[in-house]
């Protein structure tokens, strides 16, 4: 991924002004954001898939990203931990900071960033290793060598992911023997074992049945106590159930961003209203 640098120096966030006459994008200036996104453009080949995105992601809150397919919501969260780097011939312009630190800073390695900003994917993707090894792997590559500590942290994260009781007797079995919902919770456990600050969920329930979905949602509400959470979802009910803030994306633009309640009950943009009432998408 190439960065089109508009501002070679460290961005001065305080002065970044957001032009939003309709106040559709409501940024709470009283809060110090965990992640701050300013004037973010993203190009894939020659197509601009994200246009001038401005938003804040607040600490220990759940931010939902909604919008019809192809609106750029997945692209957006993949930039937040720079998984977008792997997309060939893509370009990014604008600023994103994690606790006031520019994530595109060459000194800030993507590897380090991803340790702090974890990700759970659309389809559960456990490694074809044992349940325990799935979690231990992340710890080992992040420098945890003591096997006792690895064990402790694995158990702790399994408990936190509400999976421990179901798998405690078969930690040595293959992760692939788990059900889809269990696999997804294992992926969450794997992610929180390395103690990230932010967890990105990319449509985590897209391939799950309703019961597993409910469990994951419950879990997200629980995890909010410890982590800042961003969740992409095409399920508006889910956004309403789990999130504190909601961002509505349409064709690469951020149409509306506000507290979830406000977005769903009293949207300030006609298009948001049309989408959440099911008129398109």
């Amino acid at each position: 991924m190439l960065r089109l640098d508009t501002n070679k120096n460290k961005p001065d966030f305080s002065s970044t002004e957001i032009r939003d006459p309709l106040n559709r994008v409501h940024i709470d200036v009283s809060q110090q954001p965990k992640i701050r996104v300013r004037n973010l453009d993203f190009y894939y080949d020659e197509n601009q898939t994200l246009k001038k995105i401005n938003m804040d992601i607040y600490e220990k809150k759940v931010t939902a990203i909604i919008g019809p397919s192809g609106c750029g919501k997945s692209t957006f969260i993949r930039i937040l931990n720079r998984m977008s780097d792997f997309a060939a011939s893509s370009k990014v312009r604008g600023e994103i900071s994690l606790e006031r630190r520019d994530i595109f800073d060459p000194e800030f390695s993507p590897v380090e960033l991803r340790k702090r900003v974890g990700m759970v994917f659309q389809k559960p993707n456990p490694f074809p290793k044992s349940i325990f090894e799935n979690i231990a792997y992340g710890l080992r590559i992040n420098g945890v060598k003591n096997s006792h500590e690895i064990e402790q942290r694995a158990v702790k994260s399994l408990k936190r992911a509400a999976l421990y009781e179901e798998v405690k007797d078969r930690l040595k079995e293959s992760a692939l023997s788990l059900s889809g919902g269990q696999q997804q919770r294992l992926c969450i456990a794997r992610c929180i074992a390395i103690e990230p600050e932010v967890i990105l969920f990319d449509e985590p329930c897209a391939s799950l049945d309703p019961i597993s979905t409910a469990k994951i949602e419950e879990l997200i509400l629980e995890l909010k106590k410890y982590y800042t959470i961003v969740i992409v979802t095409h399920n508006m009910q889910q956004a309403l159930r789990v999130s504190d803030y909601t961002a509505f994306f349409l064709m690469g633009e951020l149409i509306e961003f506000n507290e979830t309640k406000k977005v769903f009950e009293n949207p300030s943009d006609k298009r948001t209203e049309d989408y959440i009432t099911g008129r398109f998408g």
Partner: peptide
Amino acid sequence: MKGKGEKF
């Protein structure tokens, strides 16, 4: 931690 050595 991941540092210079690792990058190298």
